[in-house]
Design a binder for these strands. Structure first.
Length: 549
RNA sequence: GGCCCUGUGGUCAAGCGGUUAAGACGGAGCCCUCUCAAGGCUCAAUCCCGAGUUCGAUUCUCGGCAGGGUCACCA
């Protein structure tokens, strides 16, 4: 059979470059030894998932801790899945979490290996597909989807491996005559790889994350060019990662099963294979069993979910790093002030097994991160959240900058020997300070003392209150009220002889606290009253006295 | 079902032939304390099972079992 002629009939494009040319157009990168070139290659579906961030982080860290390059390539070979604005959304979302690309789609950079959209690289793929046909390593297949489906059913019925291989690869041995007849009839066709592999042969393969793994040779005649002339993922992967000079392909372990196909593709194309690192999946508990996190089933785990809930972006990254590199947590504990970028990330320190997503852990990291910030930084963070997700009333809180800073300094324990860790997310943090604002102050007057006692405490303390008092003086006055009304001024006294008193100072303080903040729990009451100011404090004391029955 | 990956407390995990089997989150308790938070201290809780190799296996080998992934003209 005249393969040259066949190749020209199948891929008649007149403007294809000789394949050797591409080696010159996309030469090896000039990087120092050990520098890794990694990439994030999402399909533009618009959803950005925690798993994407997880993988992007591993790529970004690997490239940047080795002095390499991290680029963005868009796998838009499936027209059906394309969503407008998806690329910008990916870039924006990752940027929010501090992940930036060095080159790639929509990047203002040298972009020497452009284009980074696979649809725009059609000529390259076609040139190589043509070459494979000429070499007898690929052939046209005219089978319809219905025919393939039928074969699959048969194979299933006989409990055989499904797919297009061996005797089931019907078009593999089509005569020249049959091919040209089909062509002249205008039958649509795909280009398949003429696999040279044997499933009985296994090879040891070194995965950068999993270690030594077994790879069974591929014998499937996979589609490399779809009937619309666009390559499948497998073919595009081999060509792009070769010509974009990727050194380390980091991707989810769901790709492990197609590794044999990829290795064969690299081989027949005459390319050196990149190194691979397959990351374990992020798992989720689903009805008693673990399951891979899925963007279809778990919309609550989209990146937007974390932004809306207001987790601190660095906390999300740090959480992911603790799962990604087992020694990160220890390092982070020792160096709480250091940026995660200073950590020596290593691919070989990555865990092999999938981690269950742990929201408690994330919350803990988030509150610790926020406790490291100055009140101004906390304010900026909360304000940013409120502007995007908050109510008008939430946004108004930031009008009086001086006031909110005072509130946040108190709530975060700024200046104390140990910071408070009350705020774990922006949304919750905003709610936490509701009582500092009259429009959101919704007290729950659940006093544990009799109404009469409550009124007496509130009344007598109001008469003594002086905003100029320091903390100690303030507390002395609370004790005076306690004593006068038959409460123990010291908790210890009360504990020794509980029957002698109505209660202790803490009970008196609780009454005041409920009146002022609407809740039995809050940071230092004296400071709260100072921030609220004399007038509002007294108004609240009076309002509570009024409300109690 | 075929192929592949994984298997240490509830969760994330250190460990890499001999350890009282780290640490973190979560849980329980105590202390501190005007409450809460924070902090300090303490406690409970783990090597999937069975053979083999070995003086000795959580660690090495094999076999089970369990969980996960994947079997498209989607990536």
């Amino acid at each position: 059979m005249d393969l040259k002629k066949l190749a020209c009939s199948l891929i008649p494009d007149g403007d294809l470059l000789p394949t050797e040319e591409y080696e010159k157009i996309y030469p090896p990168r000039d990087l120092k030894k050990g520098a890794e070139v990694t990439r994030l290659a999402p399909s533009p579906t618009g959803f950005i998932h925690l798993g994407n961030l997880y993988s992007a982080l591993a790529d970004e860290r690997t490239a940047h801790t080795t002095g390499g390059v991290f680029y963005l390539r868009i796998e838009d070979t499936d027209e059906k899945r394309k969503v407008d604005g998806a690329v910008e959304s990916v870039i924006r979302s990752l940027d929010y979490f501090g992940i930036k690309f060095d080159e790639g789609a929509e990047m203002d950079a040298p972009n020497l290996y452009a284009p980074y959209y696979q649809r725009q690289r059609a000529k390259i793929y076609r040139a190589f597909a043509k070459k494979l046909i000429e070499e007898g390593l690929a052939y046209p297949c005219f089978c319809t989807e219905e025919e393939l489906e039928k074969v699959r059913e048969e194979q299933n019925a006989q409990k055989l491996v499904t797919g297009y291989y061996g005797v089931y690869a019907k078009c593999r041995n089509l005569t020249e005559e049959q091919i040209y007849k089909n062509l002249s009839e205008g039958k649509p066709f795909v280009i398949r790889l003429k696999s040279q592999g044997d499933v009985n042969i296994k090879h040891a393969f070194r995965d950068e994350i999993k270690g030594e793994i077994t790879v069974t040779e591929n014998d499937q005649d996979v589609v490399i060019l779809k009937s619309d002339g666009i390559p499948t993922y497998h073919f595009a992967h081999a060509i792009d990662d070769h010509f974009m000079r990727t050194t380390l392909v980091i991707r989810g372990e769901e790709w492990l099963s197609s590794l044999p196909v990829h290795l064969e593709l690299f081989k027949v194309l005459g390319f050196q294979t990149p190194r691979y690192g397959h990351t374990p999946s992020l798992l989720k508990m689903d009805g008693g069993t673990k399951r891979k996190l899925s963007k279809r089933k778990d919309p609550e785990l989209s990146l937007d979910y974390y932004r809306k809930a207001g987790y601190y972006p660095d906390a999300v990254i740090k959480y992911l790093l603790t799962i990604l590199n087992s020694n990160f947590e220890e390092w982070s504990l020792k160096n709480p002030q250091k940026s995660w970028r200073e950590f020596g990330f290593r691919v070989d320190k990555m865990g092999k097994s999938g981690a269950l997503f742990d929201l408690d852990k994330l919350s803990d990291i988030s509150k610790n991160e926020i406790a490291l910030l100055t009140p101004e930084e906390v304010c900026a963070f909360l304000k940013g959240w409120a502007e995007e997700f908050g109510s008008p009333s939430d946004r108004r809180r930031f009008d009086d900058q001086t006031y909110i800073i005072k509130v946040l300094a108190l709530v975060t324990g700024f200046g104390l020997k140990k910071r408070r860790k009350d705020i774990e997310r922006a949304e919750q943090g905003i709610r936490l300070i509701d009582y500092f604002f009259d429009d959101t102050f919704t007290p729950d007057y659940s006093f544990r003392q009799p109404a009469e006692t409550v009124r007496e405490i509130l009344g007598s303390f109001a008469r003594k209150y002086d905003p100029a008092d320091d903390n100690q003086t303030w507390f002395e006055k609370v004790k005076e009220v306690a004593r006068a009304l038959g409460f123990a001024a010291e908790t210890s006294e009360y504990k020794q002889n509980p029957s002698a008193y109505k209660g202790s100072v803490s009970d008196v303080a609780e009454v005041l606290r409920i009146a002022i903040t609407g809740s039995p729990n809050s940071p230092d009451l004296c400071s709260i009253m100072k921030i609220l100011g004399k007038e509002r404090s007294l108004t609240r004391l009076a309002a509570a006295a009024q409300a109690v029955k």
